[in-house]
Nucleic acid binder design. Structure first.
Lengths: 212, 212
DNA sequence: GCGTAACCCTACGCACGAGTAGGTATGCTC
DNA sequence: GAGCATACCTACTCGTGCGTAGGGTTACGC
């Protein structure tokens, strides 16, 4: 008997996205280990074997979440920071996009950074993404430096970039925990710390340890 | 029959430290969840019920590790940054002590930051410690500001401090993953990023978002 | 209108690891 | 050297949750 459609039996592509949505929510709420596949399935309005059929084991599912959220974030940033702008403008737009993304996807951020960092199986995945970020930032700095006719050793550049990325991640955490905070304002503050320091470096000013 | 002592039957205080040593090692190697109490016990050269008798459940054990390592770190920093020095000197000494500690206690650092951050039960514990760090840094900045006859809103100060702490943590992670890197040099680099930017802020220079 | 493939379910097996019960040996006090 | 506390062990119980076996139902091609 043909009852109401009962909105079931959706095509695979749709269900996979629903599952990923649910997974991101649950992982972010409980953490990787405390999250159970049963809860994810229930949250997605589907039964467990379906999750296994489509997305594989728990680890694979988590990696899939990581990938989707990470890609979205990188796209948000890349889309905002056009490569033909001056360095400070690029940095500003990149930061604004970044904090905007975190503010809008607090769940995704929690999955991405708070969970993935601790668990060895995913640390590599995460490190690769961070490396791409660092590379982008280092590229900006290097570009600005050459425009000034200066150069810095590649290692130093990378470490500075690493510090900036770290500071941003830290503020992003802060933002995720303060729902009332304004992403734009946070980006401005980060820009103040980052750019004022970086600009000094770009102009050849450096700090040297006291010798005694 | 009195055989060789077989180095057993140690007083509680000693065994507790051995257990904590083992726990820090195993937690840092495996992560909180993947670490088993059996492995910790074995690594400590003792049987599992002893661990339960002395340090309690797995969570309590982890908190104990967190406490010990955290206290050691805070002491290392506090001992180095005497409060009567000028701000830049304090910051420098604090950073040097911090990176020195991380370089020497990579295991402890991994437990502290990589594990504790992700798992909700310990996030609070960790946040409290970080809050103390942020407070110290914010205090330095504030002190330096007043010396210059300036003031900044407390929130901004805290956020800047938060960013600096985050950048340091990030570089500490980097340091923990690069055994060949020199803690002192890392501290110098961090000082460059942190102080050059902060000094600008202290002198009233700020960056403002473009208005268009 | 009938096969076949995609979608979806209920119900289980099974390993792993936290925590404990219950007992033994060794040193310390008096 | 009797009594007692402390250090220590082997050997279990038992919940939890991952992953699967095996079977049902709807759509779609032909």
């Amino acid at each position: 008997m043909s009852t109401v459609p009962a909105f079931k039996r959706l095509p695979r592509a749709v269900r996979e996205q629903q599952m990923l949505d649910a997974a991101v929510r649950v992982f972010s709420r409980r953490g990787f280990h405390a999250a159970s596949m049963d809860e994810i399935a229930e949250d997605a309005g589907i039964s467990k074997p379906m999750v296994y059929a489509y997305l594989g084991t728990k680890e694979e599912l988590f990696v899939a979440c990581l990938h989707r959220e990470g890609t979205r974030m990188m796209q948000a940033i890349a889309g905002a920071a056009a490569p033909d702008l001056p360095a400070d403008e690029r940095l500003w737009r990149g930061l604004r996009a970044f904090f905007g993304f975190v503010g809008a996807h607090r769940d995704g951020w929690a999955v991405l950074y708070r969970q993935a960092r601790g668990e060895q199986p995913f640390a590599g995945e995460l490190a690769a993404m961070r490396a791409r970020l660092v590379e982008v930032v280092a590229g900006m700095l290097d570009h600005a430096l050459r425009a000034e006719g200066r150069e810095i050793a590649a290692v130093d550049l990378e470490v500075v970039a690493y510090a900036l990325v770290g500071a941003s991640e830290s503020l992003a955490d802060w933002l995720a925990d303060h729902p009332e905070a304004d992403p734009e304002k946070t980006a401005t503050r980060m820009m103040n710390v980052a750019w004022l320091g970086a600009a000094q470096l770009l102009h050849g000013v450096t700090w040297r340890p006291p010798t005694h």
